[in-house]
């Protein structure tokens, strides 16, 4: 399953790597690509694992950023 997270407050490249690191910590997340250019994180999630949008939001805010939307 693929989720696209739109993120606010990402103003530098090290922000992108922080968000990547935080999202990768969720077990079941297979790959994360964060782009500060599009302000989006694309998260690939193992279909067998259930990860709620709330979990994703928490991971983003743990790194210090705000989630605008998840699709």
């Amino acid at each position: 399953m693929k989720k696209k997270i739109t993120i606010d407050g990402m103003y530098c490249a090290s922000c992108a790597t922080n968000i990547e690191r935080s999202l990768k910590k969720i077990s079941g997340v297979e790959s994360v690509a964060v782009s500060m250019m599009t302000r989006k994180a694309i998260v690939e999630i193992n279909d067998k694992v259930k990860i709620s949008d709330e979990d994703l939001k928490k991971a983003v805010s743990r790194a210090g950023y705000k989630t605008i939307s998840i699709e």
């Binding site: 922000c15 690191r21 935080s22 743990r62």
Partner: peptide
């Protein structure tokens, strides 16, 4: 945002 890095260990440019 910079000082939050010192607490959460998610350091950034700030």
């Amino acid at each position: 945002s910079g000082f939050r890095g010192f607490i959460s260990f998610y350091f950034n440019m700030d």
